[in-house]
Write a protein that binds this DNA or RNA. Structure first.
Lengths: 199, 199
DNA sequence: GTCTATACGCCGATAGAC
DNA sequence: GTCTATCGGCGTATAGAC
């Protein structure tokens, strides 16, 4: 029984290792330019066979990454909403999370912001229809109703606000800005918030 | 002699047809998911052979698209700079061009804004190091010197300004905003300009 | 659960007739 | 300059021993 648990844990661990290696390679090289051989080699495997022991095929690796990342992002957004009442505070929480992820888990952020997911995951929901991103729109709508955010099209407010946030992070990730994301956090938050804040 | 000219023109025309079909497919499906067979079929060819008559290989098609699009964008930026003195006017000209291209040549805009060019054109310059985009930074720097634009890091000002512009256009291109780009032009320009304008 | 070995398919690319 | 035909290679995926 102990053995079985160990085996299951071992399996879960190598699954995660595969996911981690794949994420890193997808984020840096792109999905189509990384082969399963690349992933296997990154893990010190001599073949791709072990990978097929854990995943049906290459696409399912990406699908699992997609599910994991968006689920965990969704949970984070829920927590942020629970812990803050005002739209401005909730948005600030999301921005803090994005900047933190950019510095601490850039591969995850690449996956969220930069990769063209629909190119290799055509059946998954577009990012903007994802639970977490739908909730962000709701936050903005609440802010408009509450008079915190100026009364414009919520989709446009979203486009402007996260245009500033995401483009800044995009540049950090691609080396267009040379400091850590954290160095730009307060200034960038202010710029983005002022675009949509009711004067 | 007349015949020769005709042949050369014909060749140039089918070259452009190949480029146009490739651009459309790359923009909609992505580079790696469109095969040369796809391109050939889009042109009514029964084989890929005619393509190889005009281009050495698939990558060279993309490289030519890259050169054409960035060259013509660069020329447009030069014209805009020549015709306007103030940084605000020059930026406005570039924004007008971007919005116009989004409505009139969305494939070109996809190529400029959305495709991950370095994934399939690793030896080409990153977009931001391109002549036109370097000039845009210069426009912003001039605006700061002239007191039109607030005195922040030009790279950051660039990130904020085009974060708003490009993210809005990105959403138009991907269907996240349902009207034509032109419907958002004046409002989006104001939002972006106000972020960097000196108060 | 990882190894060796191998099959299979797709796509990029070429040869050569017309 | 487009056709028929075909090659070669890479990358995905599987079979089966250990």
């Amino acid at each position: 029984m102990d053995q079985e648990i160990e085996i299951i844990q071992a399996k879960a661990e190598t699954q995660d290792e595969i996911l981690l290696a794949a994420l890193k390679l997808f984020a840096t090289k792109g999905y189509f330019t990384t082969s399963l051989v690349d992933i296997a080699q990154a893990l010190g495997m001599k073949n791709t066979s072990p990978i097929y022991h854990h995943f049906k095929n290459k696409q399912m690796i990406a699908a699992r990454l997609y599910a994991n990342i968006f689920d965990s992002f969704n949970i984070s957004v829920d927590e942020i909403r629970r812990r803050n009442q005002k739209s401005s505070e909730q948005l600030r929480g999301i921005v803090d999370l994005f900047f933190k992820l950019t510095d601490d888990a850039p591969d995850v952020m690449q996956f969220l912001l930069i990769l063209k997911l629909n190119e290799f995951l055509p059946e998954e929901k577009p990012v903007l229809e994802t639970a977490a991103f739908v909730k962000i729109i709701k936050i903005i709508q609440s802010g408009i109703t509450a008079g915190e955010i100026s009364d414009i099209d919520p989709q446009l407010a979203n486009a402007y606000f996260f245009g500033i946030i995401n483009n800044t992070l995009r540049l950090v990730l691609t080396g267009g800005l040379d400091k850590k994301a954290d160095a730009y956090l307060s200034q960038t938050w202010l710029a983005a918030w002022n675009v949509i804040a009711k004067k």
